[in-house]
Amino acid sequence: MALPAWWSRRRMRHAPAEAVRAYAEGFAPAPSRTPWREARFVVFDTEATGLDIGADRLLSIAGVGMRGDVVVLRDSFECLVAGDRVGADAAPVHGLVPQDLDGGADEESAALDFLGYVGGAILVAHHAAFDVAMLDRCLAAGGGRLLNPVLDTEHLARRLKAGGSPGRLAREPRVSLDVLAARYALETPARHTAAGDALLTALALQRLLHAAEARGLATVGDLLRR
C-alpha cells in the first residue's frame, strides 16, 4: 500500500506518562443506558508478528469510528510501526533516530496515538481479547492500559445466533471474520491488513447491530452484557 506524502514526516515522540494521564483524565465512556445509535464505536484491528502477546511485536493498528451504525471514514486511524516496517537500513531516509527503531518505543508511540484517537469510544474488534492485550502490553511501560468498554464481534455474532440461551451460546461454534463476511456478502479487499480487517469488521458490525436491534438490544449496556 502506498502511503501518502504526509506519512513519511517524522512522527513526534510523546512523553508516555503524560499521554496516558491525559487519556485517563479525559476518559468519559457513554453511560450504559445510552442508546447505541447515539454512541461512538471504534472498530479496530492490530497486526502483529505472531500470536504471542509477550514475544511478538505490534506491526500496525487501524481503526474506524462509527456513529451508531454509520461508518465515518473521517474518524479513522492507521499507524504502521516504523521499526518493523522500514528496518534499520532505511532509518536515515526517514530521519528516524536509532532509539525510534527500538521496537518497544515505536510500538508504544503507536499505541499512545491510538489512545488519543479512541478517547471514550466503545472499542470493537473481532476476537477483541488479543488486540486489547497486545495494546495493553505496548502501553504498560508508560503505566497505561485501555480503559474502554470492549465489544467482541465474534462473541456478539454467536450470542445473537444463540438467541439468549447460555447453553446454546456455549455450544455455538466460533465465527471467523471470513465466515461473517460470507454471511453478509461483504467484499474483503485488503484482507489481513489492519485497515482492511478493521473496515470489514465495521461493516459486519452494522449487520450485527441491526440484528441486535431486532432482538430488542437498544442500549450500550444491552450490547456489552455478556
Partner: peptide, 23 residues
C-alpha cells in the same frame, strides 16, 4: 486526531484507498 499534539493527520490511508476504489 491525536490528542498529543502530533502533527500527523490520522485518517487511515488503507481504508480511504478501499473506499476510493469503490466510489
Amino acid at each position: 486526531m491525536s490528542l498529543f499534539g502530533s502533527i500527523v493527520r490520522m485518517v487511515s490511508p488503507g481504508m480511504l484507498a478501499t473506499v476510493a476504489a469503490r466510489l
